[in-house]
Design a protein around this nucleic acid. Structure first.
Lengths: 159, 159
DNA sequence: GCGATCTTCATGCGTTTGCATCTACCTTAA
DNA sequence: TTAAGGTAGATGCAAACGCATGAAGATCGC
């Protein structure tokens, strides 16, 4: 691999990081969250995307949080009545997490307002083509990040 | 604005978020960080990019952390001898933050290893063209996020 | 079928974070 | 010049986090 290709990769990643931090701050500053932290909302949103209850470790894949921290965050949301922990009938170790009606309603309410802010920010900055590019790029990067080290080894062996 | 353009904007943002979380986990799992947390490294890296000492609030722009948390993080790094807090001669309220030689050396050491991991992940996922697109898109999004609400109002009034 | 190992989630504990607030300093204007 | 308001950073304190570890169920090999 050429040195400049590595450099471009690092510049692209830094650009993504900067955009992420910058927009996250902007979104966090909007007065739409009510009693929810963005992390809590993230959990509710992730659950709302799936029809079937999620396992804790599945939820953990999407959230940037340690397993114990996520476990306790879920605790707190359950205590507030926004989701339910149900023992998994097929795996005695596991829990299934499902939004309650209150949780679903809360996600919709906050999510609707948040989506407006996201649309405002992103459409103001990017063309339609760029939005499409970003979505495709994000998808590829996420797939790369999700690959296990073993999978990456196989992938590199092919190159 | 059309409904579908808003929807695409949200999909693009979600894609960025997923990529961010996924790759951050991967990078965090790499055994290259030594005694540094990624947030601490982020501060050292930001300082290393600038020749002149940074003010605390300038540092805060790039870091996703509250002002008090950043203040204390800087405290700890200063106690460990990785950076220096110097009272700003031009503003009695402020501090100037500069890497010590030890801090600069530590950033280089860890940063070099980290850059290798970033390059591996990003080049494996993206073409050169996509990397260029991502860098441009990130730049535009960051500029949008950094704009003050007043600036955004003016911007929207023009549309 | 049974011990060894792995996986999933919870818990103890020290550290770090965010919110609210405080102090000190700068800026503006009368 | 000085009072009013704004900005930079520090600090008290409760909440949340990460690391290490534990308990309990699943899975694999012999």
């Amino acid at each position: 691999m050429t040195r400049s290709r590595s450099r471009r990769a690092n510049e692209a990643w830094e650009s993504l990081l900067t955009a992420h931090a910058s927009l996250m701050k902007r979104f966090a500053a909007e007065p739409i969250w009510g009693e929810l932290s963005m992390r809590e909302y993230d959990v509710l949103y992730t659950l709302s995307k799936h029809d079937e209850p999620l396992r804790l470790f599945e939820l953990g894949r999407g959230v940037l949080l340690s397993q114990p921290a996520l476990s306790r965050l879920v605790d707190r949301l359950a205590e507030r009545g926004l989701l339910e922990r149900i023992p998994d009938p097929e795996d005695g170790r596991g829990v299934r997490l499902a939004l309650t009606e209150a949780g679903r309603e809360r996600q919709r309410r906050v999510g609707g307002r948040h989506a407006v802010g996201v649309a405002r920010a992103v459409t103001a900055a990017l063309t339609d083509e760029e939005m499409a590019q970003l979505e495709a790029i994000g998808r590829k990067l996420a797939a790369q990040g999700a690959a296990t080290p073993a999978q990456r080894n196989r992938q590199e062996a092919v190159l």
